[in-house]
Nucleic acid binder design. Structure first.
Lengths: 123, 123
DNA sequence: TTTACTATTTGGCGAGACAAACTAGTATGT
DNA sequence: ACATACTAGTTTGTCTCGCCAAATAGTAAA
């Protein structure tokens, strides 16, 4: 019974991380748009607070570098005030454009998916 | 310029297919809950009508078999009235339980993600 | 018998998320 | 001085799942 609980809980976590696929990068762009700039470590916290928990460094940092090499963000090393150096990221014009273009598409998709699930659950 | 258009359009499509990860199976369970039973070919159409377009047979059929082997649906071959045989799927109790448990989690996740994106877009 | 529509199967590919281990700078308590 | 803990970022190998393409086949209409 405990085993069952553990398994289903693990499965839920795995599923939620699947859900992040494809929208995590938009979420990061959105957080950068909101704060002007930020670095990886605190972005993890902000994602967590925003209800998108469980981000691992091995997920976020490669993503940030990917966004960088795609030109959606730019990065700059700065000395850390208390702690090691930090790589600050900020949105580029291109990044802002992608966010403006893809954000509404996500909203629409999410609404459609939610509608399907709720119709199914109420039958 | 045309090249650019083609590329960004392709990227959008790619992104939307990423969004399906982890929720496509719930959507299929929901459609089966709604209709009692159904088979692959028409599920593609129903997904399309529900705003989750572009499903390929190479995606849906393996998914249905996965759900079958996980015990979330059960399947039965029946002769097709006009056309080849059809493999009908219907929800099991376990499938219904998974839908009831995971569906609300999706709703919550989708709302959180949407909120983050919208805060980002309005700043 | 050719064409078109319906229906399912199979195989290979690739993006990206994970876990885990690693490097390192700073701060705190003893 | 030393151990410990916290902050910060990197690297590597593995796995899932959705994609594309192509094969297989039954039925129906021309």
């Amino acid at each position: 019974m405990l085993y069952f609980l553990v398994v289903t809980e693990k499965k839920s976590v795995e599923r939620q991380t699947q859900w992040l696929r494809g929208v995590l990068d938009l979420a990061v762009l959105a957080l950068l748009a909101e704060s002007g700039e930020d670095y990886g470590y605190t972005l993890v916290r902000r994602l967590d607070e925003a209800g998108l928990p469980g981000m691992r460094p091995g997920t976020l940092y490669p993503l940030l570098n990917r966004l960088d090499s795609e030109g959606l963000v730019r990065s700059e090393w700065r000395a850390g005030s208390g702690g090691p150096g930090r790589k600050f990221f900020q949105l580029t014009g291109q990044g802002r454009a992608v966010l403006a273009e893809q954000g509404p598409l996500w909203t629409e998709f999410a609404e459609n998916a939610t509608a399907v699930l709720e119709r199914g659950m109420n039958s």
